[in-house]
Structure formats: structure tokens, C-alpha cells
Amino acid sequence: IAVATGAWADPSENDLVINGDLEITTHAEAPAYIEGLSEIYSGWRFREVDTQATQMDDFDNPAFLAVDAAQEAWDTVDGDAGKSCASCHGDAMESMAGVRATYPKWNADAEEVRTLAMQINACRTDNMEAAEYGYTSNDMTGMEALISVASRGMPVNVAIDGPVQSTWEQGKEMYYTRYGQLELSCANCHEDNYGNYIRADHLSQGQINGFPVYRLKNTKLNQVQDRFKGCIRDTRAETFKPGSPEFVALELYVASRGNGLDVEAPSVRN
């Protein structure tokens, strides 16, 4: 019975180094406000060695096809304002360095918490006068991946206080709510049981420093809120919609649980 309640963490001890020189922090001390964890680990630590290897070289990482497509979209004029992302932001690897690490974050003008996806769409509609990307569409996950590459190897550093605090509290409450007919919370699986197996699945801490994630299972980039949706669905619950205020709150909270891990998106998982 001790096995059932204690967190038997057995993440691998491997080090993540990308392209032979970019060292990624996949293990850190847990932030003080996460009472249920003393240490945090990237999901990469819980994957099989060959899945881990796929993420260690951008030529092997299948997500980079989408990154290349997004680089093209970045440079392409779209919408009535006659602009591309590059018209205003120039080289993505320079202008977007560090951006992914701080999202979701407060936008003072709009007076709302914005996810990276929301910010991308705000630029598309307000600054380009172009159509929004679907929240979990390939265009969106590709653009998120491109912007994330510019922050790889930088520590996640999401703010939890000030104007975002009430949203963060809402996300925290959701994290510990036991949804659905199986009555399981995120914490049941990812805090109390990481390292354990649930059927064939080796449970990680459900960190999101690697999102968007290329999954070998569905051979595409997966948006973080689509992942939340899948996990809630698996508790036999009515899920929330990607882009909904609830999932924005949950994303902020879950992102903050990874403060200290490096951004490693686009990552590879099974």
C-alpha cells in the first residue's frame, strides 16, 4: 500500500543535450509554491531511450518539418494590412528569444492573461488583419514551435502573482479537482504517481516545458490544451475547450509548476 501513495519517481538519469551542444535542464528543485513536489522533471526523462534520442538532434526530430513550414509562414505576407510576422518582428530567432519561457502572461493593454497561441492570434487579427489560426491547428502548433525554438535552453519563468494571481489560483484548483466518473485529478496521476505505470504508460509529471510536443502516436505536433483535453477525457469527464478561460487558467498554473526547467519545445514523446 505504501507503493500506492508514495511517489516512486524513477525518471531516467540521462542528460538532454541537443545537436551535441545545447544543454537542457530537465531536472530542478520544485518551486516553493508547489507543495506536492520537491523536485521537478521534464517529461523527456520518462520516455524510452530511443524516443529520447529522437529529440537530441534536430535532423531526427520530426517536429522540425513543421518548424520549417512555420518559418515560411513567418516570412509570408498575409491579411489586409499587407504584413508578415517578419515585417514587424524581423528574425524570429532574435526577436522571439525568451518569449516562450514567460507565457502565459498578463497583457496590460487587453487586460487579460494570454497564452502564446492567443498572442499569435492577436497579432494575426489586430496587426495583420488576417484570419485567426484554429487554436489547436497545425498552423498554430507550427508557429508555437518556431517561437519556442528561440527560447530553447532558457528556463521557464512564468509569473504567478500580480494581475495573474486569481487566474493562477483558478488553475491550481482545477489541478486538484477530481473530474469525471473515474474521479481523477491531474495531481492523482502526475503528482502522486509520476514514475509509476498506469497500464503501459509511464507517468511523467505532466510538465509543459516541451510543448508543442511531437507525438509518435499521432505523428504530429500537439497543442498543450489538446493534451489537457485528452487527459480530462480519459477520466470519463466532460472536457473543456482548447482556448477556453478554464484551460488558459490551467495552462498558466501547469506552466508555473515547471518554472526552473528549460524550454525544450518542440519535444518528442510517444
Binding site: R178, Y179, G180, Q181, I232, A237, E238
Partner: peptide
């Protein structure tokens, strides 16, 4: 306990239609 209740029909938060997410 984390173990689901297999013979219970009430008291759930956002119960779904099996695994459809609805």
C-alpha cells in the same frame, strides 16, 4: 483513495458520456 468507485452513479464533477469528452 485514487481507486475509482465502480458501483456508484452520483456525486461526480463534470461526468462525461463514457470516453467521448462530451
Amino acid at each position: 483513495t485514487m481507486m475509482p468507485s465502480f458501483y456508484k452513479t452520483t456525486g461526480y464533477i463534470r461526468p462525461g458520456d463514457a470516453y467521448t469528452g462530451k
